[in-house]
Amino acid sequence: MAGMDMSGGSGMAAMSLVGTGRKLAAGLLALVLLAFALRWLARAFDAARAMPAGVPEPVAGIRADALSPACHAAMALGMAVMFVLLL
Rank of each mutant, 00 (worst) to 15 (best):
A48L: 03
M15F: 15
L41G: 12
M51L: 13
I62C: 07
M6N: 11
D65Q: 12
L77K: 00
L86F: 10
A80G: 04
A64Q: 08
C71W: 08
G9D: 09
A64C: 05
A66N: 04
W40V: 01
V59H: 10
A73F: 01
A30C: 15
G27V: 02
L41P: 00
L28F: 14
A37V: 03
S68V: 05
A64W: 06
V18W: 03
E57V: 14
F36A: 05
A47H: 07
A73W: 01
M75N: 07
L33V: 00
L67Y: 13
E57M: 10
A2N: 12
A53N: 05
A64E: 06
P58N: 06
V84C: 09
A47C: 09
A70K: 02
G3K: 03
G27N: 08
R22A: 15
I62K: 02
A53E: 10
G9K: 12
L67T: 01
M82T: 15
G61F: 14
A26S: 15
C71G: 05
M12I: 06
G21M: 10
A26H: 15
R39W: 06
T20L: 13
M1G: 15
L33N: 05
L86Y: 06
R39K: 04
A42H: 11
E57L: 11
G3A: 08
A35S: 14
K23N: 11
K23L: 12
A42P: 00
A35H: 03
R49Q: 09
M15T: 08
L29R: 15
A66S: 13
A44D: 02
G3I: 04
L77G: 13
S68N: 05
M12F: 13
W40S: 02
G3E: 10
L87F: 09
M75W: 02
F83E: 07
G11N: 09
M79P: 00
S16W: 10
T20H: 08
H72C: 10
A13G: 12
R39G: 04
L67I: 03
G11K: 05
F36H: 03
L24T: 12
M1Y: 09
M6P: 01
A44W: 01
M82G: 08
L33Y: 10
A50Y: 09
I62R: 05
C71M: 08
A70H: 03
A76T: 00
V84R: 13
